[in-house]
Every structure is written in structure tokens, then in C-alpha cells.
Design a protein around this nucleic acid. Structure first.
Length: 996
RNA sequence: GCUCCCGUAGCCCAACCGGCAGAGGCACGGCACUCAAAAUGCCGCAAGUCAGGGUUCGAAUCCCUGCGGGAGCACCA
């Protein structure tokens, strides 16, 4: 038998056993097969049409399957063994599905724009492209060495001009779209303009643009009107300015304590004119559509939480001294309106200056004048500020200097000052005082609240601190009174805390409406009807989600396809002028003018003077324009890469529609079309809100505009776990190199002679506990590494790395090899003699189990079943005597089942079994159902819940027959000891339980 | 503070819709091989499921309480 591919496998392990499977042999096998796969394009997945369609006819009858990994950032330090867990998981799954009859797309690309390469460029002057490309090359090498079966023709990097040209193109699609609230979807701006010009649409939401007809507006006014409605717009608003990074950041990139997620630099609120994307228009769909995709509940919860949908009403409170001015508030409990005894506006609220009264009222307590802040703020005395004007100004300054961190530390201590103004409660007509307090946030709702201290704990605390009335308008249940040691019906002024639950409304009636006696949901409906009838409010849905800040003052990102004309108004470039390429500059340092408090960003692209100013003919002759100098955020490129894998070289569109439909449109097992596109998306939980929210948003816009065919990008999402490892801290609290630590748990650990403490954490550079895959590969080989990562636990579970456990799976590969190949001569140990029934049954049970496990991503149990089967084969060979050979039917099935997990060794053995074609495209074994049924089963018999006997019965025996056999069994009779059997529970195939 | 997830042999982990707690691996012990050691092979080994209560003929599995670990959110009106 001549096996060309195996012929060179003559690297002696040691003198005695030259063909034992070990690191040297593994290394030889692995590099040889990796070369062959690359040379033959083994992992190429054909498209139905276009340049990548060669070979499609052969697979046309197969269902498609799109398996995707989260886009890695090509870091300079390379991979550790924790990184490939998900990549190996998708690779095993993709290989399994290919072998079981799918056309599988599995590709890999690089999210290569971003800060690290740019920061390296700032330090060294090295162009970020040079660093980035070197890192990508290194990562490609590592992926290849892991044996990952990617279709490398489809690899893209976000930094490729051919790629970011289409990122800019998508930006333009979004820019040229607006959200039609009546249709509930994005539509082209051109349609809006056409309708306005035709007079079919006077304006949006019933409001005339500028109060005049469209035709009466000047060209500049028309542009400004339309620009305000675009899904991409310029906004002058407080943004997260991070001087440490020299750029502004999206809310999603700022941690709760007010620092940058990357780099941990302080972040300041600064009003700047920036590009934003109108993701809030899609908030409702982004929440609702979560119900239609197969994602972990945890991730859905995090997205829902981030979007923060809350249903309530917007209510206008007129000012007492100026009823034409109203303060709008948002509340989720409009049924408690009658209990609103004061109002609060956020310190940053634009109405604050209008509110402030000239002088304190005689009855205003010193606490309202800010006396409580004496000692905290310099210019406050124990009787407070002298006037509302000073108090509000002083308090606003105080609030602006408090960092988020301080606010948290002093959490729940309520501060604020009275504005001197009163508003009118629209239900009761009562005048209620208006305060400024920082427990109300400008960023949520309207930045102002009606305060109902009886039924909101924050308002309750504020009311107690400022001696404001607490009026109960929802009657708590008697149990609530009992829990608080109060007599039922105790007035709210005597409650120890607010009652925030639902109940029955009381003391809530005026001439127009009575809520008294209504349960909360009915009371809300009733008050909403009344508010609408008197024009004081409307039901509203509010979101915590803000529009996506899309500008970054960086060099290493996609340039905007935007220029500014002489009027300073933005103009989108036509598609024909794409790509807008990054200019060469000699200094990448972001410039920051001023110190932290009033610094302003200057984008590095401003240094490319020749580029920044450009003469273009945009239809009205050559004119001079200024380019947009900001670049897009790193998230832009990763919003659509999964579409580019489908058709990576298309220069007419981001993706051909026919190819997009082929790969993205899926169906469930019962033939229903799926809602999302990618069949399986695997990645870390850290992208729960950022990448996954942005990508869903872009996808929905592209769907509305007809560029993609599914409403969601990712049908099934799966989070791989993290690999944890011991980390060691010295007495200074500094992590030391885990590799160099000596000792053990009992004797204690030490590093360079000093004692260190053991911790456990996510493997990585920061804990200095990374384990390199190269080291494991040298010691055992890639197949062992892959198998170990899959065997150590469920794919979605965090698990500690344990170097000494790896030997277990390595031994399994060695034993399997030994059952098929003679370790001394390299000759085959596989023969034509058939397996017996018993071995065959073990094999087919294994096939059935492994198939089910792999289909369900339970690779750990699949590995266990393969080990079990091989152990059975080993025993069978031993029992059969010295000359016995492994039956070819068993050998082929075992090797084929091993192929997804340990593809190199499986290919090698497959070739040694006489096959010339790659195992990658071979069929996964199928279990013979007749070998899975058993004729006779042994049932345990429980007497009073304890196993007392076992009976053998036919597998398909009737319940009555089993009962009879059990009751006749002598061990059962003895266990019963004459007691009466009150009930017999027979679970066919499982057990029998006699109840006495 | 609120929400969610997880606690099974010394360790990593199985156990499908509630049905005999154990598939697999590590470690450990014995034996074989060896001058010896490593490697390798064979054989063996152990817990009753964090604690307490409930439902059930039957609970690792469902429910409640507590303890321990992890994650997310955190003045969101």
C-alpha cells in the first residue's frame, strides 16, 4: 500500500519505538497536513455565484451553515492558550457539520484599526500600517499552526482600503437615510425630500419646518431641516472627552466610575460638535427583536438593560409665576401624580436659569437655601446662600465638580437647593416648590422629575431631608404595614420608607377624574386618558440608550466620506469618490490644547494640510472644501465584517445580494425561516453591549434599505468561557511571572525566594499568567492542545488551565494511534477481520452519542465517548490475542469521528487506511439504529426507594409482565418481608419502584 | 442595594423531560517493563451531590431559605 502523504513520516520518536505517537511525530504530521490543506484549498467554501463559486455544483444540494468567530484585534503580543478556545470550538463544529453534509462557511479576519497600533506609532514613529500588518501575519501563522480550517480567500482586515471603502459606503447609506416613525423603519432621505417637494408631506410629526411650507424655505434651510433628520447627524452636546486618549468616547466606552474602558483615563463631560448615529430610533426594535433570536439570556438581559426601555407618561407642569412655561417630566407612575409634592430639575437642566426667583420667601427654611452644604462648599453659611440665584449657581458649580466617583461614594445622601420657583401640580392645582438636585440626572428622561415621596424611595429621602410633605396616594397592602410595624392605614407622613409597589389608588380625585379605588394599572390608564383630554401629558416610552457618538480624534481609523462647504455645512461625498484614503502624516500624536478642565481635541488628520483641503466638483463646478478630520470609531469596521466574508473581493457592492441571501437566510429544523443570519456566532461575553448592539443597529438599517435580507445579523450567539489560571502576587501586591513560581499549596509558593500568594484569574498579560500555545505544541502537538481545550469542560464554562491534565488526552491519541499503527514498524494494525456484535454495538452507541454531542457543542462529552470507545477496542484486541487486528469498520469510524477534534492525526490515519482524498470532506459516520436497540435490559428494583434487586426483562416487555417478573423475584420477596405492596411504579427501561 | 448564573470524588468534569449518582481525564496506590528512573501498559481507588426545609412513589435535577463563588446593573424617575 503506497501512501504518499505518510511516506515521509519517519521521524523516530526514540530508538525502540520510532512510530509511537509523540511530539516529534505529531509535529511532522501537523506541518505536512497544514501544507497540503493550504496547497489544495481544502477549506474553500464555494459561493452559489461569482468569483468564489468554483465547485458549487458539487455542494448545491447541501444546506448551508455559516459559523462565525468574533473578529480578533491583531495584538502584537500574540495568542495565549486562552484565546483559541472559541476558535477551536467553532472549528470543530464547522468540521463536524461539513462532514455531516453542510456547505460550511468559516473564515477569519482582523479588526485592525484601533489604539494600540497608533500608540505604538506615537512612540516609535513607525506607521501603524506596518505594525498592524506584521501583527496580522503573526496571527495568521498562529491560526494556521492551530489547524483551524478557515477559508483564507475570505480573510479581510478592516484596515484594507478595499474593505474600508465599503465601511464608508455603508456610512453613506446610513447618512442618506432617516427614520420614519410612522413606518417604524429607516427610509432613504431622497424619498422624504420627494414627498416634501410634492407637498405630500408637510413635515415630520405634524410640525412645519421653521413654521413654513417646504417651498418657502431657502436651500440652506432645506438642507438643515433634512440634516436634522438623518440617521447620521452633527450634534453639539456634552460628550465624553478623554484627554488621556486625546479623543471623545461613546457612552458604551466609559466605565461607571467615569473612566475610559481602554486605558482607564479620566473622562470629562464637554460640549463639542460631533457626529452621532441615531441608534435610539431603533431602540424599540433592538429590544423587541431580542425575543426572536437564540442568544444566551444573560446577554439579552444586558442589552435590554443597556437600552433601558421604560413605559410611562410625559407630563407638563406649568410654572406658577409663568403658566406659559412648563417643565416636562417623565414618570413611570402617572397614577401617583396626585402625590407629587415638589419637583426636581437636574443641575444641568436648561430651564434652571429661567426658574430662579429673585429672593427667598420668608418661609423658606435654611435647609432649602443650602445650609446643609455649609462646610462642604466654601461660600455657604449655616443659614445658606443669600438668594436663590447664588444658591442655584453655587450648587450647579458644586455638582459639576463632583466626579461620578464622588457621587457614588456619597451615594444616597441627598443634596439640593430650592430655586425659589413654584410649579402647579396639574391634578390638584397646588403650588409645589421646584428644587435643583443632583440625584436627578440630565441624561435620563427629561432631566426633571415630579417627586412623589410617598412612593419613591429617592424622593422620600429628599423629602425627609428637606421637610417636604409626604402624601400617600397608593394604599399599601396590610402585610406591608405589618412588616413595618405600623397599623394598617397609617398616613404616609409616618412611614419609615416609601411604598413603591402597586396597590389601590386613594386621595386621587379632582373635578375631571377620580382614581380612587382603582388598581395601579387601571389608575395609570385612567390618568393617562385624563392627561390627554386636558392636554397636560401623553403616554411615552423612554430609553436609557443614547445616540451613538461616532467621531474619534484619531489617525488610525476610517476617514469620513464628508467634506464641508464654504457655509461650514457638511456635504456627503458621492459613492464614486470612495474610498477616502488615509493621508500619510509624520506625527500621529493626538494634540490636546489646554489642561484637563478646558482642553479641546485636535485631530491628527489636521496635520495633513494638503489632504484636509481639497478641490472637488460635486456637481456645481470645482470648489474648495475642507475634509472632516475625525475618524470613525473602531466599532465601525466590526459592524459588518460578517457580510464581507461572504463576498470579499466584490468591487461593485459590499456583498452580492444573491450571495448574501444564500449564506444569511436560514431555516429552523421544522423549515421555518430564521430571523437572523449567521447560524452560529461564538465570542466572549465582553462584547455584550458594544459590538453586538452596534452591529445589530447597522444591520437593521441595511435591512430597511434593502441591502440585506434578514432583520438580525446573528441568529444564534454562544459565549465561550474564559480560561483561568493561577496568578501570584508578592507582598507589594504586584503580580509576578507565574511561570517562575516555585512550591505548592501545602509548602507555600515563592518567587525568587520571596513568598507569594496564589490567586486565580482570567489568563492574560496583566496577571502575568499566560501560557503560550507554542509551548504546549512543542510538548505534545497541536492535536493534543485542541483536544485538551475541548475536553476540559463545556465550551461556555470558565475553567482553570491545568498543565498536568493535558497528558490524559495525549495518552488517548497515543493509544488510538497504537491500535491502528504498529509502534515499532509503522505497519498497519488494521485488518479485514470483522468486529463482533459486542464491539460493533459499542461503536455505534459511540457514533450516536458523539453526533448528538457535537451537534449540541458538547465537545467535552464527545471526547469522553471517543476515549471510552477506544478503551473498549483496546480491551477487545487484548482479549482476542496477539495476532488480532483492529477491524477496519471500527478504525475508519473512530478516525472519522476524531477528525473534527484532532484533524491532523485523523488525516494521517485516514491516509494510512488507504484513502487518497482528504478526510475533511468525508462523511461523518452514521449509527446503525438496529445496533442501538437492546433486546434485554436489567432493571433495578427499588423497595421503598432503595435498590433491593435487579431483574432481567425483554426491552419491550409490557408493564404488566415486568410487574409479574418483579413480584416473582426471590430477592424482591425477601426485601418485602411480607409487607403489602401499595403501588408499583414501572418506568420502562429505567427502573421499578415498589411502594409499601 | 437589585438582578442573573454556579456549588457533584483531592482536582477538572458526566448524569437528556425528576428514574440505579459516574462517562472520561488528572492525581493517588499496586503490578509489568527497566540496572535504575522517566515514559508506557494493565489493574485498582474514592464522593452520595454546599447546608436545611418542601413537593413527589422517587430529587444532583423542581420550589423555598441560608452559606460560598462568579457576573451584570447601580440615584434610570
Amino acid at each position: 500500500m503506497s501512501i504518499p502523504s505518510a511516506a515521509s513520516a519517519q521521524v523516530p520518536e526514540d530508538d525502540a519505538l520510532p512510530y509511537r505517537y509523540g511530539p516529534a511525530l505529531a509535529s511532522d504530521i501537523e506541518s505536512r497536513w497544514q501544507d497540503r490543506w493550504a496547497a489544495e484549498g481544502t477549506y474553500h467554501a464555494p459561493n452559489p455565484t461569482g468569483e468564489l463559486s468554483v465547485g458549487f455544483e458539487r455542494l448545491a444540494g447541501r444546506p448551508k451553515l455559516y459559523v462565525l468567530d468574533m473578529f480578533p484585534y491583531p495584538s502584537g503580543v500574540g495568542l495565549h492558550v486562552g484565546h483559541p478556545l472559541g476558535y477551536i470550538g467553532t472549528d470543530v463544529y464547522a468540521r463536524f457539520k461539513r462532514m455531516s453534509g453542510h456547505n460550511v462557511l468559516h473564515a477569519m479576519g482582523y479588526d485592525a484599526f484601533g489604539l494600540p497600533a497608533e500608540q505604538y506609532a506615537v512612540q516609535t514613529g513607525q506607521h501603524p500600517r506596518v505594525t498592524t500588518e506584521a501583527n496580522i501575519a503573526n496571527m495568521r501563522r498562529q491560526f494556521r499552526a492551530l489547524g483551524l480550517g478557515h477559508d483564507d480567500r475570505r480573510s479581510v482586515a478592516t484596515t484594507d482600503v478595499d474593505y474600508y471603502r465599503w465601511t464608508q459606503w455603508i456610512f453613506l447609506q446610513i447618512y442618506h437615510a432617516w427614520f420614519d416613525p410612522h413606518a417604524g423603519r429607516a427610509r432613504p432621505v431622497a424619498e422624504l425630500v420627494a414627498e416634501l417637494e410634492a407637498g405630500q408631506r408637510l413635515a415630520v410629526d405634524g410640525e412645519h419646518p421653521e413654521g413654513r411650507a417646504w417651498s418657502a424655505l431657502s436651500a440652506a434651510e432645506q438642507r438643515a431641516f433634512v440634516d436634522d433628520l438623518r440617521l447620521v447627524y452633527r450634534d453639539q452636546a456634552p460628550v465624553n472627552w478623554c484627554p488621556g486618549l486625546g479623543t471623545v468616547l461613546a457612552n458604551e466606552e466609559v466605565t461607571p466610575d467615569g473612566r475610559s474602558e481602554r486605558g482607564n483615563f479620566p473622562v470629562f463631560q464637554r460640549p463639542l460638535q460631533q457626529w452621532k448615529m441615531r441608534i435610539t430610533a431603533f431602540a424599540e426594535r433592538l429590544v423587541d427583536d431580542l425575543d426572536l433570536i437564540d442568544w444566551p439570556e444573560r446577554i439579552k438581559a444586558m442589552q435590554r438593560n443597556w437600552i433601558g426601555r421604560s413605559v410611562g407618561a410625559r407630563v407638563r407642569f406649568p410654572l406658577a409665576h409663568d403658566p406659559t412655561t412648563t417643565i416636562p417630566v417623565f414618570t413611570t407612575r402617572p397614577d401617583t401624580l396626585f402625590g407629587a409634592t415638589y419637583m426636581v430639575v437636574a443641575p444641568e437642566h436648561p430651564l434652571v436659569s429661567q426658574l430662579v426667583a429673585g429672593a427667598w420667601g420668608d418661609a423658606d427654611p435654611t435647609s432649602w437655601r443650602g445650609a446643609g452644604l455649609a462646610g462642604v462648599i466654601d461660600d455657604v453659611t449655616v443659614s445658606g446662600w443669600d438668594s436663590p440665584m447664588e444658591a442655584v449657581a453655587g450648587y450647579r458649580h458644586y455638582a459639576s465638580t463632583r466626579s461620578e466617583m464622588e457621587r457614588q461614594r456619597e451615594s444616597r445622601v441627598k443634596t439640593g437647593v430650592f430655586t425659589g420657583a413654584f410649579a402647579v401640580n396639574p391634578t390638584s392645582g397646588k403650588h409645589i416648590p421646584v428644587f435643583v438636585a443632583d440625584y436627578v440626572l440630565m441624561g435620563y428622561g427629561t432631566g426633571a422629575i415630579m417627586a412623589v415621596p410617598a412612593h419613591d424611595q429617592r424622593d422620600f429621602e429628599f423629602a425627609r431631608a428637606f421637610d417636604l410633605p409626604i402624601v400617600g396616594v397608593v394604599r399599601p397592602p396590610d402585610t406591608w404595614f405589618a412588616e413595618h410595624g405600623l397599623a394598617p392605614g397609617t398616613p404616609a407622613s409616618a412611614w419609615p420608607e416609601a411604598f413603591t409597589g402597586t396597590g389601590v389608588a386613594m386621595a386621587s380625585a379632582n373635578e375631571g377624574v377620580s382614581l380612587d379605588g382603582l388598581a395601579t394599572p387601571e389608575a395609570i390608564a385612567a390618568v393617562n386618558r385624563w392627561l390627554a383630554s386636558v392636554g397636560a401629558g401623553t403616554p411615552t416610552v423612554t430609553y436609557r440608550l443614547h445616540d451613538w457618538l461616532f467621531s474619534r480624534q484619531r489617525y488610525w481609523g476610517e476617514p469620513f466620506p464628508i467634506v464641508y462647504d464654504d457655509d461650514g455645512l457638511p456635504v456627503a461625498l458621492p459613492e464614486s469618490m470612495l474610498p477616502v484614503t488615509l493621508p500619510e502624516i509624520d506625527d500621529y500624536t493626538p494634540t490636546v490644547l489646554g489642561d484637563d478642565d478646558d482642553s479641546v481635541p485636535v485631530p491628527p488628520l489636521g496635520r495633513a494640510a494638503d489632504w484636509a483641503e481639497v478641490t472637488l466638483d460635486l456637481g456645481d463646478g470645482p470648489r474648495t472644501y475642507r475634509r472632516e478630520l475625525d475618524t470613525m470609531p473602531q466599532w465601525a469596521g466590526s459592524c459588518w465584517y460578517y457580510l464581507r466574508y461572504l463576498d470579499p473581493h466584490n468591487d461593485a457592492a459590499p456583498v452580492d445580494p444573491a450571495i448574501e441571501r444564500y449564506w444569511m437566510q436560514g431555516s429552523t429544523a421544522d423549515g421555518q425561516p430564521t430571523f437572523g443570519g449567521v447560524d452560529l456566532y461564538v465570542g466572549g461575553v465582553e462584547h455584550a453591549v458594544l459590538h453586538l448592539l452596534y452591529a445589530r443597529f447597522w444591520h437593521k438599517v441595511l435591512f430597511d434599505l434593502g441591502h440585506v435580507s434578514t432583520p438580525e445579523p446573528f441568529q444564534r450567539l454562544y459565549n465561550q468561557g474564559y480560561i483561568l489560571a493561577d496568578a501570584f502576587v508578592d507582598e507589594r501586591g504586584v503580580y509576578v511571572e507565574a511561570d517562575a513560581v516555585e512550591g505548592d499549596a501545602e509548602a507555600g509558593f515563592s518567587f525568587e525566594g520571596r513568598p507569594v500568594r496564589r490567586e486565580q484569574g482570567k489568563m492574560g498579560k496583566s496577571l502575568r499568567n499566560a501560557v503560550s500555545p507554542d509551548a504546549i505544541r512543542n510538548q505534545y502537538g497541536t492535536d493534543t492542545l485542541r483536544l485538551y481545550e475541548m475536553a476540559m469542560g463545556p465550551l461556555d464554562a470558565d475553567r482553570p488551565w491545568s498543565g498536568r491534565d493535558i497528558i490524559g488526552v495525549h495518552r488517548f491519541l497515543q493509544k488510538l494511534w497504537r491500535n491502528l499503527v504498529d509502534e515499532e514498524t509503522g505497519a498497519s494494525r488494521v485488518g479485514d477481520a470483522p468486529a463482533d456484535d459486542q464491539l460493533r454495538r459499542v461503536l455505534h452507541r459511540t457514533i450516536a452519542g458523539v453526533r448528538a454531542d457535537m451537534d449540541d457543542l458538547r465537545f467535552n462529552t464527545a471526547v469522553a465517548k471517543l476515549i471510552e470507545c477506544n478503551n473498549a477496542l483496546t480491551r477487545w484486541l487484548a482479549a482476542a490475542g496477539g495476532g488480532a487486528t483492529t477491524p477496519v469498520e471500527v478504525a475508519e469510524a473512530l478516525v472519522a469521528m476524531l477528525a473534527p477534534l484532532a484533524p491532523h492525526m485523523a488525516e494521517e490515519l485516514w491516509a494510512r487506511l488507504g484513502h487518497t482524498d482528504s478526510l475533511v470532506w468525508a462523511a461523518f459516520p452514521e449509527a446503525d439504529p438496529t445496533l442501538l436497540v437492546v433486546d434485554e435490559v436489567e432493571l433495578p428494583v427499588q423497595v421503598a426507594g432503595k435498590v433491593r434487586a435487579r431483574v432481567r426483562v425483554a426491552a419491550d416487555a409490557e408493564v404488566a409482565a415486568i410487574e409479574a417478573a418483579v413480584l416473582a423475584d426471590p430477592a424482591v420477596v425477601q426485601a418485602l418481608a411480607g409487607r403489602e405492596v401499595r403501588r408499583v411504579v414501572v418506568v420502562p427501561g429505567r427502573l421499578v419502584n415498589l411502594v409499601v
